[in-house]
Computed example of a mutant assay.
Amino acid sequence: MKIRCAVLDDYQQVAMSMTDWSVIADRVDVKVFNTHIESEDELSAAIDDCEIVVIMRERTPFRRALFERLPRLKLLVTTGMRNASVDLAAAAEHGVVVSGTRGGGEGTTELTWALILGLSRRIVRENEALRTGGSWQSTVGVDLNGKRLGLLGLGHIGTNVARIGQAFGMQVAAWSQNLTAEKAASAGVRLAASKDELLESSDFVSIHLVLGDRTRGLLGSRELGLMRPTAYLINTSRAPIVDRDALIEALRSGTIAGAGLDVFETEPLPVDDPLRSLPNVLATPHIGYVTEASYQGFYRGIVEDIEAFLNGSPVNVLS
């Protein structure tokens, strides 16, 4: 009898085409769910016969209560090598191995720049006017050349964002709690004297930090108030790094000029959420990692993780 495996949240219906599943087809029966199941009751009923579950990033959290309702579950595979929505302690207590995967491509870097360019040139507004017969040339764009780009975080993605900013002729600075002058210099970036100095001096502030105890709520009302009223905030990292209520108030009051957002505290974003309708927000539905290269890497890794587990030697185990 084959082992049952559920692949959750395959919104684009590409899970079975992104890699070769044939290497485990004789041992695993895969069922794919293309829509998000919000209710824990419905989800546990749908997958309670599965020994293996695959999740895409943080679309479906796995908390202790869910592990308790899935006694057959033996392997949970998550895309990426960290997932804040999985209770690893609960998984271990219930005898569930949690394996991660490595993606590929530079999707988040590229989307960061799509948001910056979309905001600076008012692309959505101008495109809508063109499509509907509205005003011709109704806005004046913001130049990037000569402007200041401030990066909160200078890891892999932050460094690549910096490189592209430099190509646009921007002055790039960065800050994080552990960033050194040597690391900044190696990327050709100025190390900001402090977080406050970075916020006060930047025309665009882009967040590229890992969510943790030190970064949760890093930007609140005080920090957003330090930004220029002509400045834009970009977040393709994790939503809780910015205080949600403070951000909405800053956008409504004109404390900042606008925001480009790809991440939200509740996903999918509720239909009545103000971030869907504020005119100075350019938002995308957490698609930074949703590219062919990333998906091919993720799903290839998923199959490799499952095969290794079936062979008795789990790999990429998270703890």
Rank of each mutant, 00 (worst) to 15 (best):
L226E: 02
G107R: 01
V97F: 12
I116W: 04
A250E: 02
W21G: 06
E38G: 05
T230I: 02
E93H: 02
T108C: 08
K195A: 09
L88A: 12
E126M: 03
A25R: 08
I287C: 04
N83V: 13
A174C: 08
G297F: 10
E267R: 14
A173Q: 12
G134N: 00
M16Y: 08
A239V: 00
L111R: 02
I123E: 01
L209Q: 04
Q171Y: 11
L261S: 07
A257H: 14
R122C: 15
G169M: 08
L149P: 13
R216N: 09
Y232I: 07
D9H: 13
G220S: 10
L261I: 04
I302C: 12
F309M: 05
I123D: 01
L43H: 07
E38W: 11
L73R: 01
E42I: 09
Q296Y: 11
G118M: 03
E42G: 01
A167W: 13
D213H: 04
P229V: 03
A90D: 08
V97N: 01
S313W: 01
S22E: 06
Y11K: 15
G153F: 09
R59A: 11
L8I: 12
S202V: 06
P270C: 00
V32Y: 11
L111E: 10
Q13R: 14
L191Q: 06
R122K: 13
L149N: 06
A181P: 04
A231P: 02
A187S: 09
G258T: 07
L43A: 05
A185R: 14
S319C: 06
D273K: 07
